[in-house]
């Protein structure tokens, strides 16, 4: 299922709705990279609240998204990692060390506002 991406001011919001296959995740990566250029976005929020599993492939792809968008001049923040998902990620040995995370959409937007000085 393709992840819908909304534009909100200087930012993009990708709200994952359901479990994603590897192909869906790679599609999201392409879509975000394209849309950052199209809308001249300064930041992107990837909302993973609906993801009930974050395995090594998902984490690797989210890291790639953040690195790729940074090269395109935009900051990325991952929001909504559920507590049990965080627990499983830590046990598996997965980290998002080099990627910004925030509790929810509101915190994610605040992070981007701060990081990009309101997108100006």
């Amino acid at each position: 299922m393709r992840v819908p991406i909304h534009k909100q001011g200087y930012y993009l919001i990708a709200a994952i709705q359901a479990a994603l296959t590897d192909a869906d995740l790679l599609q999201l990566q392409d879509d975000l990279s394209g849309k950052v250029g199209q809308y001249r976005s300064k930041g992107a929020i990837v909302d993973v609240t609906a993801l009930d599993v974050m395995d090594s492939f998902a984490v690797r792809t989210l890291r790639s998204i953040a690195h790729m968008l940074r090269l395109r001049g935009a900051e990325t923040v991952i929001v909504g990692i559920q507590p049990e998902v965080a627990f499983a990620m830590v046990q598996l040995g997965l980290t998002l060390e080099d990627v910004a995370t925030a509790l929810d959409l509101e915190e994610g937007l605040a992070y981007l506002e701060d990081k990009t000085k309101g997108g100006a």
């Binding site: 395995d55 492939f57 559920q82 507590p83 049990e84 998902v85 990620m89």
Partner: peptide, 17 residues
């Protein structure tokens, strides 16, 4: 429990991949 279900689902995802 829900945490254990998530842990199990994550392990399945890894070995199936």
């Amino acid at each position: 429990s829900q945490v254990e279900r998530t842990v199990i689902a994550t392990a399945i995802s890894e070995i199936a991949r």
